[in-house]
């Protein structure tokens, strides 16, 4: 069912809560839609068509533009975060999956899974600035806070490629475990986390030296869950760098890692096939997409507990939360 901003949402928007409610956007890979939730009521407020096989999703720094990788349309669709109208598309190269947006909002770095390329797209002129050959099945895209390096992970090559954002040259390659999925820097840029879905590990990469170096690999163990189901995918780190959350796919759990000790301290039970995650701007909540149960789980970050789940569209894949907007 496609809803345009529903009545409760409108009523809510008129209220003056102390904490700002943020819009949470979820791509539904099979349903070909984006679901919109409200981060205070956790109600679904809208769902709109988003092209074929929408996966990667991100938002402009000012919160006004929503970028959706419509993988089967070979394009990035750009939506207005108020009207949910599609404004225009961006050239993405074939089969865009994940992408990273420069902190300034331009350019967009896009992984093209079928073509062993990372495409750099200018979000203003809407043109391709560069195509960078990388390993087989490029997937994860991360960018460091200074935006000097972007990182691409290639799933069959099993590497993290460190690409200089000034000349688009690969400056370093690090082999990680099988099928690297996601690359996430800490807010201070000193550490990079790369998840390996089939290897079952998260590589912790030290970025403080002249070259990136793998410091350790973190594995997972849950009693009663077969080891082969512990498949790390999405990774998020609190901005103080203290806690790392790792979505474990078909294990239906999010691992909580103490970043000081690199130890897993807890596993939070969430929906089925947990995939990607996003914090609310205040980092009170972490939202996870659960592809097989068609819902999202809301985790209380401080308590490290799942507090509720909300049904969304078919096969939720990616999630992004709108930043706080000027009132």
């Amino acid at each position: 069912m496609i809803l345009k901003a529903s009545l409760p949402a409108l009523l809510f928007a008129l209220g003056t809560g102390a904490a700002q409610a943020n819009k949470v956007f979820v791509t539904n890979e099979k349903g070909n839609t984006v679901t919109v939730l409200d981060s205070e009521s956790w109600e679904v407020t809208a769902e709109f068509e988003a092209g074929n096989r929408p996966r990667g999703i991100t938002i402009s720094p000012d919160g006004k533009l929503l970028y959706v990788a419509a993988s089967d349309d070979d394009t990035v669709r750009v939506f207005d975060t108020e009207s949910y109208e599609e404004l225009y598309t961006l050239p993405s190269g074939p089969d865009p999956e994940q992408f990273a947006l420069h902190p300034t909002g331009n350019p967009l770095y896009i992984a093209n899974e079928d073509d062993n390329l990372v495409t750099v797209t200018d979000t203003e002129s809407r043109t391709i600035k560069a195509e960078i050959p990388v390993g087989v099945e490029p997937e994860g895209m991360g960018i460091n806070p200074e935006a000097t390096f972007m990182v691409n992970t290639s799933e069959t090559t099993n590497m993290a490629h460190f690409i200089d954002t000034s000349d688009y040259k690969i400056k370093h390659n690090i082999l990680v475990d099988q099928r690297p999925r996601y690359a996430q820097f800490t807010a201070d840029g000193k550490t990079l986390y790369v998840s390996s879905e089939i290897g079952g590990t998260v590589s912790v990469i030290d970025m403080t030296g002249p070259e990136p170096v793998t410091r350790t690999k973190i594995g997972f163990e849950v009693s009663g869950v077969l080891p082969e189901w512990l498949q790390p995918v999405g990774v998020k780190v609190t901005s103080d760098g203290k806690w790392v959350f790792v979505a474990l796919g078909p294990a239906n759990r999010v691992a909580v890692i103490d970043a000081q000790s690199d130890e897993v301290v807890d596993y939070i039970l969430v929906g089925q096939r947990v995939w990607q995650m996003a914090f609310t701007p205040d980092e009170k909540y972490l939202v996870t997409t659960n592809g097989n149960s068609n819902d999202v789980t809301v985790i209380d970050v401080h308590k490290q507990k799942a507090i509720r789940s909300v049904q969304v569209g078919q096969q939720p894949w990616g999630v992004v939360v709108q930043p706080d907007m000027a009132q």
Partner: peptide
Amino acid sequence: NEDNQTTGAFL
């Protein structure tokens, strides 16, 4: 071989 070659090119 193509998959290996792509990775090999980086190494």
